[in-house]
Simulated scan of single mutants.
Amino acid sequence: MVQQDARLDRIFSALADPTRRQVLARLGTAPATISDLAEPFAISLTGMTKHVRVLEEAGLVVTEKVGRSRRCRLGTERLDDAMAWISFYQRLWERRLDGLDAYFTLRKGIEQ
C-alpha cells in the first residue's frame, strides 16, 4: 500500500504543473524531442528536461537517447493508477450522494 501511495503521489505531483500537463497532451499526438517540447513554452532545454524527468519518474513518459537528442513518448502505465484511485472515490461519493438523495426523498414523502 505504501508503494502504491508513493506512485500516486508522484503521478499527482507531476500532473499538478500546467506545463507538464501540456507536455503530456503534446506527446499524446506523437513522440517528440526535448527541443520540440521546449519550443512552445520558451523555456530552456534544461528546464524542459527537468519537467520531463518528473513525468518520467511518475511513469507517465519514457525517454530514449537518439543520437544527440532525447526522444520522449507517453509511458505505458499512463494514468491507470490515478484513474483507479479517482474511480474508487467517485463510486464512493456517488453511493453517499445516492443515500443522501434517498434520505431527502423519504423525508419529503413523510412531510407531505
Rank of each mutant, 00 (worst) to 15 (best):
V2W: 05
Q4Y: 13
D5A: 11
A6C: 10
R7V: 03
R7F: 06
R10G: 07
I11F: 08
F12N: 04
F12G: 09
F12Y: 14
A14Q: 05
A14L: 07
L15F: 10
L15D: 10
L24N: 09
L24Y: 13
A25F: 08
R26V: 04
R26P: 02
R26Q: 01
T29E: 08
A30E: 14
T33L: 13
S35R: 15
D36N: 03
D36R: 06
L37A: 06
E39I: 04
E39R: 08
F41S: 09
I43T: 12
S44V: 15
S44N: 14
S44Y: 15
L45C: 03
T46E: 15
G47D: 08
G47H: 11
M48T: 15
M48L: 15
V52E: 13
R53D: 09
L55K: 09
E56A: 14
E56L: 14
E56N: 13
E56S: 15
A58G: 06
V62A: 13
E64H: 10
E64D: 14
K65D: 15
V66Y: 06
G67H: 10
G67F: 06
R68T: 11
C72S: 03
C72D: 06
R73E: 13
G75A: 02
L79G: 08
L79A: 07
M83L: 15
W85P: 00
W85I: 00
S87A: 15
S87W: 12
F88L: 08
Y89W: 11
L92Y: 02
W93H: 05
E94C: 02
R96F: 03
L97F: 12
D98V: 09
D98F: 01
L100V: 11
A102G: 06
F104L: 10
F104V: 08
F104K: 01
F104S: 02
L106P: 00
R107N: 00
G109N: 09
I110V: 10
Q112L: 04
Q112V: 00
